[in-house]
Design a protein around this nucleic acid. Structure first.
Length: 152
DNA sequence: GCCAACGTTGGC
DNA sequence: GCCAACGTTGGC
């Protein structure tokens, strides 16, 4: 069992949007960064858990938990020439980009904000807090996962 | 391979 | 909107 943090701008896709579609298959698609792609393709396993993080908004922070319901497979949105995640270099034989499926587990009782996370020395090694970190998918160590949940 | 120009992310 | 910190592109 591994833990992850996955970012989304709530104006694009929020945790409530995920809840509204619970019961349906939700693709975590559109990731177009090679480091994040490698995690989606090679590391993230079915039944891993992930924090849902709201980025680029009034109060950036962790808002919920999701479960990976399907491990990495080709992101077909790259093949749609009219979609905003289109990549002309992709073919079915050479997918280049990958996605996973996710389903909501639960919303946190409150948002655990980025500002709050920064206050805890226990989290100085947390990938989210590293200088210049912009990855939209980050690993979370078990002790970091448990520490953050204990803040709730 | 170098590197300048450009694009993106995301906090503030 | 600003801007730091990356990542990508493409000429050479």
């Amino acid at each position: 069992m591994q833990y992850w943090l996955m970012k989304s701008e709530p104006s694009e896709f929020s945790y409530d949007d995920l809840l509204a579609r619970s019961g349906q298959t939700e693709h975590w698609d559109g990731v177009r960064n090679y480091q994040a792609r490698n995690m989606l393709r090679d590391q993230i396993q079915q039944d891993d858990l992930a924090f849902f993080y709201h980025s680029n908004c009034a109060e950036p922070g962790i808002v919920g938990i999701m479960r990976i319901s399907r491990a990495g497979y080709p992101d077909h949105t790259a093949l749609d020439p009219l979609g905003k995640h289109s990549d002309p270099a992709c073919t079915p034989a050479n997918p280049r980009w990958y996605m996973v499926d996710v389903q909501p587990v639960r919303k946190l009782k409150r948002t655990i904000s980025l500002a709050e996370l920064k206050n805890h020395p226990e989290l100085t090694g947390f990938a989210l807090l590293q200088r210049g970190s912009r990855l939209s998918i980050l690993p979370v160590l078990p002790e970091q996962w448990n520490f953050i949940l204990a803040l709730e």
